[in-house]
Design a protein around this nucleic acid. Structure first.
Lengths: 339, 339
DNA sequence: TTGAAAGCGCTAACAG
DNA sequence: CTGTTAGCGCTTTCAA
């Protein structure tokens, strides 16, 4: 049974080692102006009493916290996970620790006002800066720097890391159009995610440029998962006048379409072209090119930027572009290109 | 550019609405003994000023925080991710928010003393309770309840959620032995993870029971990833006297072995049997049974237990067992069983 | 129904 | 080198 007791404070340590609280505080913060034997004595007492500093009290007084906040709506969602992988790595390489705040539900916290709330919650008290993922807000009021990963707004009033989703979408559409496809299905990503919206925009614009009218029936909702790709793939391919190519918003969905095509006896790429964005975990096993690091890269870069900002104490309204690569699936062989 | 300004405090709100701080505090905490018009006035000011309560100051004074802490060494690691998926879902269904604390590196925080530190950090100040993943410590001193997921220690002095790894390992080994295998390779999981160790123990014990001497060359390190499975698979299969079956510590590794076998022209299961534990993402696509929810379940249950403990304010030294399922890969068809 | 005042545990001047 | 003291922003008695 874990020992449950009133927590040890700096006062207890001070008393037990016969010094004042400020001396203990000095030892705690590695100040140099402490006599060696005093320091040793205090350290010994700290160890014996099992003292841990009170995070709340500490961050209330001191400017530097060595803590970076991350606000994500949903840590269990593949999209967030990929980003967090990159963030995690950058954190591991840095002197900062990471505090992730989540409400567990993308819908609870999607609203801009909620985001502002969580950002303030962390930045006004605990952290030196925060990363916000898939932010819907155009502006933030905050004490410390903030960097957004894949914000909904294209030109936000804060530093951000974005993928070249619109460009990538245009290029992949042009590729499909160059193959002669006229009816191209589109499986959307989550509507809350800005990058997914930009891919859709690229889809529409590419068709318009090619003089092809957009058939709204060919645009179906999705949520970045393989099951949804499967379901929507079946839906599209069972249409009276089915598409000859499908553009899935990400690779997870594309895998689902692949399954759907399999089931319906369609061969890829002879009967159907399928393209997808992003990241696939088992790509190598499937004989495809290794996975796209785009999201992880975004997370990694975001932390780098944030640390830079924390050090400089400036807030540049900078946008860092990460090239969104695309994967064209063709019968277990892949054409890849950086878009 | 984000507005960077001195954060709005309860004092500012009080001043602006012409009441005292205590009244604002009452409104903030939804106390009933506030005149309606006062409340409205204060609320309006809070909205206008964009006030957010200071988490640090707040949790320093009040007992209930509606916040659950999660201590994970490495959030980018597949093992942690699966657990977090379950945790995330349980949090979404609860009234609590989640605060994840990580150092970004499994090696930094693996030591028991570090864990104690992080647990205290959260539990003594910010959170109502914490979940600790893959804990190495046998005991914890903490103000609030704690629940461990997959601790290293089998019978820890705190509540925990554990998988039936030893049992599962025994059974799968007995299955392989019953097929007539005498030389069975074993690809380890991460050495820091207790459950991985228990699988290895099952491997050894099953062989001993069958009267087969353990060949230490057949036991190779791994880290739960597909690349490591691949590498170790090649290593094992290139031995002078290679194994006829390989037991990978989890399914990610098993996929790697599968690749290795492919490359070396071995057919499964005719030339080689491969078994793996845990979770695979593209299982369905590969024609295998859907993924094993074991880790996510553990996370989910852990939160449930913790909330229970927080409400009861008791600390039971309870162990919740989650059945670890196993997947036997046989040439893209799967035998599954609950162990 | 409200305000004044006392701290929560800590850090940071400011004296010695 | 060390102790005293004044708060950080908040909740919570205790009076009014």
């Amino acid at each position: 049974m874990p020992t449950r007791k009133r927590s040890v404070t700096i006062q207890d340590v001070a008393k037990a080692s016969g010094v004042s609280v400020s001396t203990v505080s000095r030892v705690l913060n590695g100040k140099v102006d402490v006599a060696d034997d005093t320091q040793d004595r205090v350290l010994a007492v700290i160890g014996k009493l099992g003292y841990t500093s009170n995070l709340a009290a500490r961050s209330m007084r001191s400017r530097k916290k060595n803590l970076i906040g991350l606000v994500v709506p949903d840590i269990g969602f593949p999209y967030s996970i990929e980003i967090m992988k990159g963030i995690n790595q950058a954190i591991a390489e840095s002197a900062y620790d990471l505090l992730v705040y989540t409400t567990g539900d993308v819908h609870k916290s999607g609203a801009a006002s909620h985001e502002q709330h969580y950002v303030s919650l962390l930045n006004n008290s605990l952290t030196d800066g925060v990363i916000i993922v898939a932010s819907a807000a155009a502006d933030f009021i905050t004490d410390a720097p903030i960097v957004a990963v894949d914000p909904h707004v294209v030109k936000p009033n804060y530093p951000s890391v974005q993928g070249t989703n619109y460009q990538g979408s245009l290029e992949i559409m042009n590729y499909l159009l160059s193959l002669g496809h006229q009816r191209i299905g589109f499986i959307c990503g989550r509507p809350e995610i800005g990058s997914a919206g930009r891919r859709l925009l690229g889809y529409r614009d590419a068709l318009s440029s090619a003089g092809i009218e957009v058939d709204e029936n060919l645009i179906v909702p999705g949520d970045f998962t393989t099951p949804s790709g499967h379901e929507r793939g079946v839906q599209l391919l069972s249409m009276e006048n089915p598409p000859t190519a499908i553009f899935a918003a990400n690779d997870q969905s594309a895998i689902g379409v692949y399954q759907a095509a399999d089931e319906l006896g369609l061969r890829i790429p002879d009967d159907l072209s399928v393209v997808g964005f992003d990241n696939i975990s088992e790509a190598k096993y499937l004989g495809l090119t290794t996975m796209d690091q785009c999201l992880a890269d975004m997370g990694y870069v975001a932390i780098q930027m944030l640390i830079q900002l924390i050090k400089n104490e400036t807030l540049e309204k900078q946008i860092h572009k990460i090239s969104t690569k695309l994967v064209v699936r063709s019968s277990c062989r892949a054409l890849t290109g950086s878009v």
